[in-house]
Design a protein around this nucleic acid. Structure first.
Length: 939
RNA sequence: GUCGGCAUAGCUCAGCUGGUUAGAGUAUCACCUUGACAUGGUGGGGGUCCUUGGUUCGAGUCCAAGUGUCGACACCA
């Protein structure tokens, strides 16, 4: 009888390339299979989850940007999540993977601005409402593309739960939290030095600034001494460095930003700097500007840097700002918001000149710089100063420049009115759960990074001068002051109370124009996805929260992970997730980060087209230990595809078998016993790998289990013989055992390769409509000592077979030619029939002495021989044996050295000493056997 | 500058509380096509475990210093 399978599957109907006698193609073609089963999973709602009495397993997706497209980083991240989710589901847990997208305030707004610019529309010409209309249109057009792409990858997200950080639930949650934190006194508004992005025209948080190494110049400028002064005789002590030229005495200030001299309000020296003692108490003239400024003294100044003279520009440098606060200096903001020079520079110059009469030789009218860009100005002013004799010298200088993460332009430190969140309390509640492993990081090394950040945390600037995002729920009163409220109505009521003016109308109030930092919504994600902010303690939240695993990149540990932990403890009193799996960065095989500009990032959808989603997933996972960077190479996907093909062909083999009612042959019976033990051992290994989040090792475990143990050993052992020009039938017991093994293997493989495993699982047995491997539970009995013993014995069998094959290979004996094996002085071999089959022997003879013309080898302490008659090359055999003897004698020497060392025998554990003694005995008997053979050759 | 990680086969990495003369995958080489699969099979070669010291009966593993490399944070105007 022909075995009976459900043969409606798409991949079956394509016999085109098959060269076998059955209807299955010899190559697996994933394309149709993948589409078909994904639709099946959707149709049968197999991804969806509702609270029930099973144990929950929750994962929230790190929401990709709503307008983003799938890149290799996503493939890595989402594959890992899908593996974890599918694995948990098959463990019988109620797995829920919640998908969604992020509005990505600044990134999306930048894209919209660019698109509008292409159409000739300037953002500045639009009202807020008009702009938002465009932004929503863009979101609807591009939003969700990435979610569709995740389906191609096989992601088993509960799509009915798809959320967006700016949908109603999430928006209301953000506003509610803002109001709550404001009322707790944790949110405040004030003028501070912030990171200003002059291109996006918004403030940024410290985390959104990245430092880039750049080759710049260091400009040494002359600040001539002003007014009445004397150079005291003791200043001419040789320690002071006094500059003087035809115009007079001057100090030299080194700066990388000569244009900021327009905001100079003081010069600062270190009071302990011997070379600048002569400047104490003096006044100097700011070159070009003509303003006369005092020389102040502060320890902050580094004596070693430049000339030890620091120009103080409180409006444009964080440290200068602090000096300004300390010494009560004026801050002159010289820039417009877009970092062009402000007309204030000219006004300030006029005021300064009106106050003090300064010689024209130090001055250039600043009007010429008004309105030009900061970098153009830098170049210009440096040239002008050189020409005017105000520049001492210019040197090359390597500098690190803070740049905007999004727009890439250098950040301008700027004083401005912003909203801040106090972080001290939140950092306090978030630190210990990670340090004491309530929340576990994989790999744990990121605990350090985490602690360092929390211990040095600064307040979080949460306002952005953007429109795309959650608008800050603060309303300003006509007479000054503001109220913070969840709704306009509430705001009005509060405003009336606060102002004592009951006649106040909504139109009298003006809502803050700013939006909130994107991460101010992301940090609520694990809670807000279950509506836990608006609806605290609801059933879903109670069931799904805390979530199980978070999978994300270490680059957003501060942006996101740390802040989710803060919000989790602040709003739920417990962790948002129990484990954090940090992925590495996907690089190309040369180790370069994948980027659009380098063009070294493959398109994941093209890869899927080429290798199948299962192949790509496997390629990604093969080299992806947690936290290590992935050096991605297409050949890994090829390996994945090859593995798919191997699985496919193993299936083809089994499906092609005819079955009869014969008794199971002993070799098949033994093979079945062994493989069943092997499966239990492998299942334990797999569970261990998963428990440690060692997913690439888990994959390698199943890979080897399937390819080596199942295909190369088990199937080869049970495979019926070929006779009379065709394969013989297989007995029913073997066939059924094989199908059961196959099913277990498919389940083990499923989390990694969902599509092919579903395809085959559906085909090895008849399945009911709606059934799926996704929901098939995998429970393996734990391995016994007998299993371990059996598998260990079988390892010896493998060694014997390999040794015989090696003999064939060396002697050029065709695999088809049957050989005889002699076992010297041993007992009956338990796996005798397995060895006969796998090594293609005609017999195994137990003999007391081996045939004279034979090749012998040792497995353990047992000697085997293959009689070869005149094929034998005695010289070569002798040489080989002599080499082995030498090796064994060296080994023996090292063992005996240990054993003759009294301190070893005394100090080492008894078991270790015992082991060494056994090694000594074994080696001695091996040596004896070889010597005997060698002397037989001589005789 | 401060702190941290890493350094094992050509490549990517395992190697747990120290205990066989160090493993895997891949690449490479040789041989093998009527038979599930050449996207395959069989066999082989390939290592100063970065260097130097130390602890120990014993070090790839622990300690110290150095070198290289990657990262985080801090920054010098």
């Amino acid at each position: 009888m022909k075995n009976n399978t459900n043969s409606e599957s798409a991949a079956f109907g394509n016999p085109a390339e098959g060269k076998g006698s059955d209807s299955l193609a010899s190559k697996y073609s994933p394309t149709e299979v993948e589409g078909k089963w994904y639709q099946y999973w959707l149709d049968n709602k197999l991804f969806s989850s509702q609270p029930d009495d099973r144990q929950p397993y929750t994962v929230v997706i790190p929401p990709p940007n709503v307008t983003g497209v799938l890149h290799m980083g996503h493939v890595l991240n989402e594959t890992i999540q899908d593996i974890l989710v599918r694995h948990a589901r098959m463990e019988g847990k109620n797995a829920c993977w919640v998908p969604g997208t992020d509005h990505a305030s600044i990134a999306t707004e930048a894209k919209v601005v660019n698109r509008l610019a292409e159409q000739g529309i300037k953002k500045a010409d639009l009202s807020r409402e008009e702009f938002l209309k465009h932004a929503w249109a863009w979101t609807e057009e591009h939003g969700g593309i990435i979610l569709k792409q995740l389906r191609k990858l096989g992601c088993s997200c509960d799509w009915d739960r798809t959320a967006f950080t700016m949908d109603e639930v999430r928006s209301e949650s953000v506003i509610k939290v803002f109001v709550d934190l404001y009322r707790k006194g944790l949110i405040y508004r004030g003028v501070r030095m912030v990171n200003w992005d002059p291109k996006a025209l918004t403030a940024l948080s410290d985390e959104e600034v990245i430092y880039k190494e750049e080759h710049t110049k260091l400009y040494y400028m002359k600040y001539y001494l002003a007014g009445e002064f004397t150079i005291k005789p003791e200043d001419e002590d040789g320690l002071n460095v006094i500059h003087k030229d035809a115009r007079g005495y001057y100090a030299v200030v080194a700066t990388t930003r000569p244009e900021t001299i327009m905001g100079d309000v003081a010069m600062c020296i270190n009071p302990n700097d011997p070379k600048n003692q002569w400047l104490k108490g003096k006044k100097v003239i700011v070159p070009v500007v003509g303003r006369i400024i005092p020389v102040i003294e502060d320890d902050y100044v580094d004596i070693e840097f430049g000339t030890g003279c620091l120009k103080v520009t409180p409006a444009h440098d964080v440290n200068d700002y602090m000096l300004g606060e300390k010494y009560n200096l004026e801050a002159i903001d010289i820039f417009n918001d877009d970092a062009t020079l402000s007309e204030r520079i000219a006004i300030a110059q006029q005021a300064a000149l009106a106050e003090n009469c300064v010689s024209n030789e130090y001055i250039i009218g600043l009007e010429k710089y008004v309105g030009i860009d900061r970098f153009v100005c830098r170049k210009q002013i440096a040239e002008d100063m050189t020409e005017a004799g105000l520049m001492e010298k210019i040197e090359d200088y390597d500098n690190k420049i803070g740049c905007s993460e999004r727009t890439g332009v250098p950040i301008e430190p700027k004083l401005s009115m912003q909203w801040f969140l106090k972080m001290e309390h939140l950092a306090n509640i978030a630190l210990s759960p990670v340090m004491n492993d309530d929340i576990q990081f994989y790999p744990a090394k990121y605990k350090n990074t985490y602690r360092h950040w929390l211990e040095n945390i600064k307040d979080w600037c949460i306002s952005r001068q953007l429109w795309w995002g959650h608008r800050i729920p603060a309303w300003y009163l006509p007479a000054g002051g503001f109220v913070v409220a969840e709704t306009e109505d509430e705001a009005l009521q509060l405003a009336r109370e606060q102002s004592g003016n009951a006649q106040l109308n909504l139109s009298d109030l003006r809502q803050d124009e700013d939006a909130l930092d994107t991460w101010f919504s992301s940090w609520l994600w694990p809670i807000s996805l279950f509506d836990g902010i608006r609806n605290p303690g609801n059933k879903e939240l109670k069931y799904y929260y805390p979530t199980a695993d978070l999978v994300t990149g270490p680059d957003i540990i501060f942006f996101w992970v740390a802040r989710m932990i803060m919000a989790g403890y602040e709003y739920e009193g417990t962790m948002p997730f129990r484990h954090v799996y940090f992925t590495g960065i996907v690089r190309d095989k040369l180790g370069r980060k994948m980027s659009k500009s380098l063009g070294n990032s493959p398109d994941p959808l093209e890869l899927i087209e080429k290798f199948g989603a299962d192949g790509v997933r496997m390629g990604m996972m093969l080299s992806a230990p947690a936290g290590n960077d992935i050096l991605f190479d297409e050949s890994l996907c090829e390996q994945g595809r090859n593995f798919n093909n191997k699985i496919w062909n193993a299936f083809r083999l089994v499906k092609g078998w005819d079955i009869n009612d014969d008794k199971q042959p002993e070799s098949a019976c033994l093979a079945t016993q062994w493989f069943s033990a092997k499966l239990r051992l492998a299942a334990e290994e797999l569970a261990d790998d998963f428990s440690k989040y060692r997913l690439s090792e888990a994959l390698m475990t199943v890979y080897k289990l399937f390819w080596d143990d199942f295909c190369s050993w088990y199937l080869e052992m049970v495979k019926p013989n070929y006779a009379d020009g065709k394969a013989q039938p297989v007995d029913k017991a073997t066939y059924e055992a094989t199908l059961q093994f196959f099913e277990i293997l498919l389940k083990m493989l499923h989390p990694f390769m969902p599509f092919i495993t579903e395809e085959l699982w559906q085909s090895i047995y008849d399945r009911k409509s709606g059934e799926s491997i996704m929901r098939a539970e995998l429970h393996m009995p734990s391995a016994t000592d007998d299993d371990r013993r059996l598998c260990a014995d079988f390892e010896t069998v493998k060694e014997v077979v390999a040794a015989i094959r090696a003999v064939r290979s060396q002697k050029n004996i065709a695999p088809k030619e049957k050989l005889v094996l002699e076992k010297i002085g041993g007992q009956e071999e338990a796996f005798q029939c397995s060895i006969i089959k796998m090594a293609n022997l005609s017999a195994i003879n137990n003999v007391s002495e081996k045939s004279p013309a034979s090749v012998s080898f040792l497995i353990g302490t047992t000697e085997y021989a293959v009689p070869l008659g005149n094929l034998i090359d005695l010289d070569a055999e002798r040489k080989k044996l002599e080499n082995e003897l030498e090796h064994l004698q060296g080994f023996l020497a090292s063992v005996e050295k240990k054993l003759s060392n009294e301190r070893f025998v005394q100090n080492a554990p008894a078991a270790v000493v015992e082991m060494e003694r056994k090694k000594q005995q074994d080696t001695l008997s091996k040596i004896a056997a070889i010597q005997e053979t060698l002397s037989a050759f001589k005789g």
